[in-house]
Every structure is written in C-alpha cells, then in structure tokens.
Amino acid sequence: MSNLIENLTLGSFYDAVKLDHIILKLTVYQRLFINDSNTQLSTHTTCRLGQWYLSNETKIFYKNQRSFQQIAAPHMDFHEQAHKALQAGQVQDWSNALQALSNMENSSMSVNRLLGEVTKS
C-alpha cells in the first residue's frame, strides 16, 4: 500500500514539474513576443524540480538510479537556455534567441524523459 501511495505521489509531482516547465517556457516565449524587458526567471536550483533534486532525502532515495543522476545537466541547461533566449531578445539578436529556444526545448525533452524514467523505477 505504501508503494502505491509513493508511486501516486511521485507521479503527481512529475506532472506538476512538467507544468512548471511548460509555464516557464510560455513565459519566455511571451516575453520575447512582447519584447518584455523582464529577464528574471527561476533557476535550476530554485524551481520545484531543483529543490526536490537537491534535497538530502531525495538524494538518499534516488542516488543509485542512473536516470536521477542524469537529470541535473539537462535541467541546468534548460534554465540557462531560457535565460539566454531572453537576454538575446533584449538586444534583438534573434538568431541566438532562436538557437537558445531550440536548446531549451531539447533540454526540456531530456528532463521529461529522465524524470519519467525515475517515476517508473
């Protein structure tokens, strides 16, 4: 019974994290579209996934899972590319903004895949 509850909780968390990242991506696209000067975004350590990933309890529980070990790099890149896209947009460097958006999307897919593997383990 506790395993079922744990799996349901982790699944709900996974869905919440996916929504958080979708909202962050939409924020980036919206700010670029309206040429908003606000470049503030959450970082890979301040978002819900980052806080979960960095917690001692999580590390103890998942440290031996390969997928968990691999999440940090694409997750950090996701946030870095989002920031780069906004910064490029500020100076109307659309080529670099588009490249950063593409990289952000690729990193997002990697994070989703890896987190999905963690939740299935």
Rank of each mutant, 00 (worst) to 15 (best):
N106V: 04
S108C: 07
L86I: 06
L114R: 09
S67W: 02
A16D: 14
I60D: 10
S2R: 13
D36P: 04
A85T: 04
S67Y: 03
N35F: 03
L26T: 10
A88N: 09
D15R: 15
I23H: 13
I34F: 10
F68S: 04
Q30V: 01
L24V: 11
N112P: 00
E80G: 00
G116D: 07
L10M: 12
L86F: 05
N112C: 01
S2V: 06
L115V: 01
S110N: 11
P74N: 04
S42P: 02
I23T: 14
A100L: 06
S42K: 08
N56S: 14
K18Q: 08
Q81F: 07
F61A: 11
L115M: 13
L19S: 09
T39H: 03
T43Y: 06
A97M: 03
T43A: 01
A72R: 08
V118T: 05
A100W: 02
N112V: 01
A97E: 05
E105I: 11
S2C: 01
L19M: 13
E105A: 11
L8Y: 06
Q99G: 02
F61L: 12
N106Q: 14
D93N: 15
V111N: 07
Y14L: 04
T39M: 06
L24W: 07
L8P: 01
Y62K: 00
Y62S: 01
Q92S: 13
R113Q: 08
F13M: 07
D77F: 01
Q40A: 14
G116K: 06
I34C: 04
Y29C: 07
S67Q: 03
F61H: 15
P74R: 11
Q51G: 03
L101T: 05
Q30K: 13
T9Q: 13
S42L: 12
T45H: 09
L19V: 13
L32R: 06
T46P: 02
S12E: 05
D15M: 10
K18G: 00
M1P: 10
N64G: 04
T27R: 09
P74A: 07
H44G: 11
I22S: 10
T46M: 05
L41V: 09
S107H: 05
S108K: 13
K120I: 04
A85E: 01
L86H: 05
Q81V: 02
I5S: 12
N3V: 08
I60W: 01
N103A: 15
I34W: 05
Q87G: 00
L115D: 03
D20G: 05
N56Q: 12
L10I: 05
